[in-house]
Design a protein around this nucleic acid. Sequence first.
DNA 1: TATGAATGAGCCTTCATTCAT
DNA 2: GATGAATGAAGGCTCATTCAT
Lengths: 199, 199, 199, 199
Amino acid sequence: MAPRKEEDNKKIRKESKEKILVAALELFAMNGYHPTSISRIAERAGISKGLMYNYFSGKEDLLKEVVKHSFEESANLLLQAVEPYIEKERLQTILRKVMETFVVMLKENAEIWKMSVALSMQTSNMPGIHRMMTQIFEKVYFRIENILQLKERPGAYSEARLLAATMDGIALHYLVLGEHFPLDEVVENFLTKFCETGD
Amino acid sequence: MAPRKEEDNKKIRKESKEKILVAALELFAMNGYHPTSISRIAERAGISKGLMYNYFSGKEDLLKEVVKHSFEESANLLLQAVEPYIEKERLQTILRKVMETFVVMLKENAEIWKMSVALSMQTSNMPGIHRMMTQIFEKVYFRIENILQLKERPGAYSEARLLAATMDGIALHYLVLGEHFPLDEVVENFLTKFCETGD
Amino acid sequence: MAPRKEEDNKKIRKESKEKILVAALELFAMNGYHPTSISRIAERAGISKGLMYNYFSGKEDLLKEVVKHSFEESANLLLQAVEPYIEKERLQTILRKVMETFVVMLKENAEIWKMSVALSMQTSNMPGIHRMMTQIFEKVYFRIENILQLKERPGAYSEARLLAATMDGIALHYLVLGEHFPLDEVVENFLTKFCETGD
Amino acid sequence: MAPRKEEDNKKIRKESKEKILVAALELFAMNGYHPTSISRIAERAGISKGLMYNYFSGKEDLLKEVVKHSFEESANLLLQAVEPYIEKERLQTILRKVMETFVVMLKENAEIWKMSVALSMQTSNMPGIHRMMTQIFEKVYFRIENILQLKERPGAYSEARLLAATMDGIALHYLVLGEHFPLDEVVENFLTKFCETGD
DNA sequence: TATGAATGAGCCTTCATTCAT
DNA sequence: GATGAATGAAGGCTCATTCAT
């Protein structure tokens, strides 16, 4: 047999890793980190338990990468969705676009978001994960502040903080109450309130 | 000689249960539910592992009572703090009072709130706990809606939802970012924004 | 208060002990020895856990007394039932009477008999209990041999052994198969076979 | 390097499972089910506690397989031993052969038989095990009935029941009394009695 | 690269027993 | 005589991790 080419190896590695990450994300999101066993993850990923340890140094490392992936993806999606509008449109339009995207993502990835929120509360255990999540989050936040400044909004700093906090608060309540929470109404109310002042 | 009196036993029982609840609250809040073992709780409470099961039917039952205690206490404190102002004062004053109390409680019980948020994200496992938390939360929410209606605020329903969500969003960001989050400034901004509209 | 009289004390002791023995017998018979906890027994007897240890030195001692009671009672009932017939009647009549009584007792106390059989198999653990059961059993056996000798039955020794073994074998199968086992038919067949030979 | 071959694994698995089954059988038979801990079994089998659960879903499952193995083996040995004689020989000869084999097996596996009898008395707990034992037992019984019918024995049904019951009764007494029980004499007496009637 | 048998620490829980009252 | 709070050893079981292949 000819030795496998370098490239093939790389591809195999990437595919296996991807399968593991996907399986882990699903299970962590569904059942939580602790109740999910490595065995179940391996099973769902269609690989052996041992193989995990070729790609990840342990369960916690796996969690870290899982979170990083999904967190970064969410952040990027949100930022990219509004990027085209930032220069041309009024703040109100931009915010509306942000909220639209936000709501879609929230509904689509409810379970994953729940996991993320739960994890972000675990400050003392898993400091590495907490740090990483904070960093990604702050990246998004800075972009928001940036936009507000661009639109010559007074008090952009605390206003950006409030804006981000409110968005996450809305998400939080939706995640807890589910369809009992009047997501669309609240978002509408929020947009009105946020834009009519000082504009 | 004579068996212990009924009263004495009651007192003993109450004290032991209290010790366990306190220890459990501290550890659950600090490290989370799963990573906290019954052994550690018993150790911290200064009792034997087995005694636990005289008072609680299991680890999850213990968590439930812990959460109920601390959650209900928080809810009551918040409601009681504003109760005297509701009739006499303007909405703005009431809200300011609410936020003051809220901020104090948030700072004082940050770890417990983290635990609560994390738990409220665990919908699928532990449905009993989730239900209980939702109920207590909704009680607070209804009082808020009530107050807004009293003050003849238009759209009290979705406005109350938004108000509650924003408060929790602010709490969330404070809990994640700690002192990096400009809590007071954001609260001020929020009060301004919320009260100046439609007033 | 006048001090309790010696007699009263004795009566109280006897009643409490009796309650415990009854409760233990029922639970041991129903669920087996190991799966039955002291707590459950105390509960059913309507007394406190601690009180048990005033009357019995431990769980195994309790079992021993329970078995002794019920075993002796069974043995006595069986012997007394046939005693009046021994002198006057033919062997066949006596045996028929024995079997009648045996069948009634078997049906009435199936669960207790199951427990007894199970315990009699535990030779290595609980040697005390095994010895006691053996002694009571041998008492019955000797009476049977005695009767056969009285009726001038040849080979009374091994015949008595066979008779006793067959009776217990029938019981065993009834206990395992329940109503699927044709108890009455088999008994009839047995009586025929046992009496027609050498008579 | 390369993962172990499928075959190798199968062999390893089989050997480990066998070791566990043997150890468990010995301990269950010697001390009973409840007093035997998984730790002790693992220790005797020379493996770790955890490995057990790769092969059995729990302690009760282990018991079930242990019983099934030993019970089925006994049943098969008994049936195979007489099979060659059934067609050619008279009933008396066949029965004598049965009893010979029976006695040998009884003496050789006394402890296992004790365990089996004890277990067969546990109707309420462990219904699965009870059912399994009953099934195997009935298989043997039906063969006996079958043979009696073949030899044109009248009343084969209840006679077969009696025959089986008597055999087990003899076994029971031997198991309880050990060498105090005159096994051979009783068997002889039994054969005489059983065959001389209706022949 | 990939496997899965094997480990062992640690988990939650039960329960016979003790003892102060 | 009677109670039941408290103990602590032991039980069954899970699971992240290792390692020979």
